[in-house]
Design a protein around this nucleic acid. Structure first.
Length: 333
DNA sequence: TATCCACAGGAATACGTGGGAT
DNA sequence: ATCCCACGTATTCCTGTGGATA
């Protein structure tokens, strides 16, 4: 069934990104000056998740690096590295100059090293809205050799805390908007993956359409569903994916995503989530009391609020209403 | 319409931790 | 071994908000 599992992984980067030609060209044009040793434009990639932003960014940098030898590139996932030190460390790690860096190294020293760069440094900040302190962006912006490619699905969250000048400068940088994939586009993506990753005729076009439908414009979800269905078929020793495989893969792929988020939570955060999961819709006060009953040594109200905010960011819970009438519930899809 | 209450989230502060330096 | 520093996390304090109530 599965011929090349890599093709079905999230990180897999196809040689050609289907239906993102325009966006790719636009980003490439913004970065192009680096080929002639000039300073490229910063870029801002916005759009819903699974719309191909990260893919386009990575592919463009890869291609650029093939053309120009004298350039550094880096990809920072701000979910994993939300604070200043981790980001700076990651950036220097890429340059191979972290041998003498430790936690007590002052940040100015780290920034100083970046300032001394001789070659251009192109950096993709994935999920840039997750950065704790947006001031870091301002400081990085001031470094001559660095070019930032900011990838985010919530432009507003990213810009709110930034000061005016940086806002306008970033806005005037190349801004590329991504839309959700249409159903047909998703089918095209899926059929490529199926062709490279699976045995011949493992899946029908109608089945791919069903997957595309369920994924609602999100390519990552779509590929996840296909992967899950293929695994099931392989487990059954079948060389064809059945409709049942697909129907069960749809919730399975979502559960898999949710589990990934849950794995990152602390015990207390998980307890808050479970309270909501068991009781459906709750007001903040009820959440807190039920949570307090559940754990040995409950955190304060303020901390629980922070947890709820975090759970919302992970798309595990959602909230409705303002002020005193606010309610929270778990998100089921 | 004025008052009240619960909530949200910013800022300052406290605490525990782990690694470097002495 | 001890001190120190920066970091992550939690707590305390506080202000601004909006819906509910009189």
């Amino acid at each position: 069934m599965i011929q090349d599992a890599r093709v079905l992984q999230d990180e897999y980067l196809p040689r050609e990104i289907v239906h993102r030609h325009e966006e790719t060209t636009q980003l490439a044009t913004a970065l192009e000056p680096v080929v002639d040793g000039d300073r490229p434009q910063h870029a801002l990639l916005t759009g819903p998740s699974g719309a191909g932003k990260t893919c386009v960014a990575r592919a463009t940098l890869d291609r650029l690096q093939e053309q120009v030898l004298d350039v550094h590139t880096a990809h920072v996932d701000c979910w994993l590295h939300p604070n200043d030190f981790r980001i700076l460390y990651k950036l220097l790690e890429n340059l191979g100059t972290t041998y003498d860096i430790h936690r007590s190294t002052p940040q100015d020293e780290l920034l100083g090293r970046l300032r001394e760069l001789e070659k251009p440094y192109l950096i993709v900040f994935d999920e840039a809205d997750q950065i704790d302190d947006p001031d870091l962006l301002r400081r990085l912006y001031a470094i001559p050799k660095m070019t930032m490619i900011l990838v985010t699905n919530h432009e507003r969250d990213l810009f709110n805390p930034l000061d005016e000048r940086l806002q306008s400068r970033l806005r005037s940088s190349d801004s590329i908007e991504f839309d959700r994939y249409t159903r047909d586009e998703l089918v095209a993506i899926l059929s490529d993956r199926a062709e490279w990753g699976l045995v011949e005729d493992a899946v029908t076009t109608a089945q791919l359409e069903r997957i595309a439908e369920a994924a609602r414009g999100n390519a990552r979800d779509a590929i996840g569903i296909l992967r899950s269905a293929a695994r099931q078929a392989e487990h059954d020793n079948s060389d064809q994916i059945s409709n049942r495989d697909i129907e069960s893969a749809i919730p399975e792929a979502r559960a898999e995503l949710r589990q990934k988020s849950l794995d990152r939570l602390s015990d207390d955060q998980l307890a808050v989530y479970q309270v909501l999961r068991e009781h459906g819709e709750l007001m903040p006060k009820e959440i807190r009391t039920r949570y307090s009953d559940r754990v040995e040594d409950p955190k304060t109200k303020r901390t629980v609020r922070k947890y709820l905010r975090k759970l919302e960011q992970y798309n595990l819970v959602e909230s409705d209403g303002q002020g005193p009438s606010r309610v929270y519930r778990t998100q089921n899809q």
